[in-house]
Design a protein around this nucleic acid. Sequence first.
DNA 1: CTGTTAGCGCTTTCAA
DNA 2: TTGAAAGCGCTAACAG
Lengths: 391, 391
Amino acid sequence: MSAGHRQGRRMTTIYDVARMAEVSTSTVSRVLNGHSSVDPDLAARVRQAMLDLDYRPNAVARSLRRQRTSLWAVIISDIGNPFFTSLVRGIEDVAQEAGFSVVLCNGDEDPDKETRYVTAALAERMAGVIISPSGRPSLINRLTETGMPVVAIDRQPRGVAVDTVLVDNVHGAEMATAHLVDSGYRRIACITGPRRISTAVQRLRGYQQALRAAGRTVTEDLVRYADFREDGGYRAMASLLDAAEPPDAVFVTNNLMTVGAVECLLDSEVVVPTQCGVVGFDDIPWAHLVRPSLSTVTQPTYDLGRAAASLLTERITNPAKASSTVTLRTALQVRESSVRAVGPPDAQPADGGPGAAPTRSPGVEDTCPAITARRHRTGAPAPRARRASRP
Amino acid sequence: MSAGHRQGRRMTTIYDVARMAEVSTSTVSRVLNGHSSVDPDLAARVRQAMLDLDYRPNAVARSLRRQRTSLWAVIISDIGNPFFTSLVRGIEDVAQEAGFSVVLCNGDEDPDKETRYVTAALAERMAGVIISPSGRPSLINRLTETGMPVVAIDRQPRGVAVDTVLVDNVHGAEMATAHLVDSGYRRIACITGPRRISTAVQRLRGYQQALRAAGRTVTEDLVRYADFREDGGYRAMASLLDAAEPPDAVFVTNNLMTVGAVECLLDSEVVVPTQCGVVGFDDIPWAHLVRPSLSTVTQPTYDLGRAAASLLTERITNPAKASSTVTLRTALQVRESSVRAVGPPDAQPADGGPGAAPTRSPGVEDTCPAITARRHRTGAPAPRARRASRP
DNA sequence: CTGTTAGCGCTTTCAA
DNA sequence: TTGAAAGCGCTAACAG
């Protein structure tokens, strides 16, 4: 009840503006929306009145009338995962050009939370949704069924026709695993995510394929399924170390679990990379600060965001078009954690140079040349300064 | 124009439900809002009709009619700063209890972006705003002037009466600096943020006070003002090292700049903590993974979020109440980067135990006993396991 | 307890 | 080019 008198005074409306400018509300509305067919004099009077009255348009009323809003909901699976930082920037940059505002919803790898935000996006009649689904395909269905424009990002929803932006997970995992093989590791383990999540499955598959290609035996003994979080990675690594024959290298399929795995190795006094090599999937910020610095499969996160946003704008303007999947390339970034031989890892081409991705998968659409992927803020500090001061 | 026929079919409304259930729209509305005064039979019929028609309430229409929404905007200054991760969780948990949904807006330390989101929050008539202002006090004014419930977080807006949640910045900085003094460092520098931001000023003041209390001379030569970002920290550190008399320790007033400063030290081959001690303000995730692990002043981020959300709910229910400021305690977390003597840093009480904060400032309101501050996910993995495996 | 009815603030035909 | 008027879907008096 107390909420009723929340905003003491009534907000000023286009009626107030119309009265002051001595025009009709339609004219005010036309000025507001930049319709050209308004007499310059009237338009000026209207604008002045808006200023005088400190008029603030009511987007709620507008949305109700127009049956659409100018808000996108971006439902991410874990706000704590740095993966989403530049992804969101990519989305925002495109959204702004297209006249949309972006609001983030933190799904937190929690199906209930995710459901709540999907419900909210639906109820608020948002203009579109970009979602990194943490499971439950029915959620995506709930969105698409109502005609809500949706783009799935990072993870492939099962059995739903929806625009999707992914990276070449299998190929990235192959590169990582092949690199460990090449570095001379013998028993290479894999810590992957929940079976219901496509990235977990695909990255595991890449690992297995690379092993097979190298003539190694592929065994489930060296595979652990965790939860894509730090704890999970820690425990999975602990479990691997407890095994009868522990691995001498591990490929971890996401950034947070990689951190957990390395912590476990540190705590167990297993020396990286000598006693155990490590390659992670997806960078962490400050990967080069960590000792030993972490080798990772890097993703063009900013461009993932841009690609998703582009798909969403297309979907909004043309709801009938067939849904499509965009796949971007990953690159292997070799740092210290996967190189046994003492010496600078710089010898290996990094940053997705031509040598880093020799086996580009067929059908991969390259919307993002590596050169643009790196142009944007990625959390790496002043590279000139760093390189300059390095002998 | 194409957007007009976006959602092919018209959405079902309470009229459709009313017709099917053979009641009036008011009854449907009452059922929807859980008003108790509805005949159970009718209510059941209504609910069944809603199910049959797959009815989705239109929050836009409801908001327009009720003159308020159930959305909070949380405008954070940098989505890439891990500081905000558990802060947001704290906000969300309280918001949910109070029946609000939280949307995040990424101000990105960019006044234009921040302005856009404030405008959006105003236009969308959000129920409230929690903001970590990156400057411009006028922005907060724009919010409060319209009667929008607002809580400022982390940073004290200048000259505006608004509910605020802070930490004891001066005290935290004093602890950090005093600790460096005690560790035997002689020339202790400070890298702080922009002068317009309260935290930068207060943490610098704490540094100066501690120096003075220790009988050291306080000189501007050892102070650098950067931008609270990683690059800034890197460059400020480089500038300190270039000075005629470089420092042998540095207190850095935020997490991102600490990372930058350490990178600079690494690149310059200055050994931490032997040649240069480092203490940062605010933790980074994986601070213990970084070699040397970083000593930091830790903030109860989750509880900061909870406190802000509580203030906001109070403000919403009672717009007339006087605005207040809640200050939470920080704690010094000593790790390797600030301890010259070789040996385990564990000797020092960590985690804000009673010994860590002996000089608690007067007037500090302790809404968050340290024990609750740690109960929640802070990104630290399975502590039991870690401690168990450490000798 | 239930229904009728009048808007919330805005956009958009339709007529002038 | 401008204005009058009809709603968008919902809630909340007010009557019954």
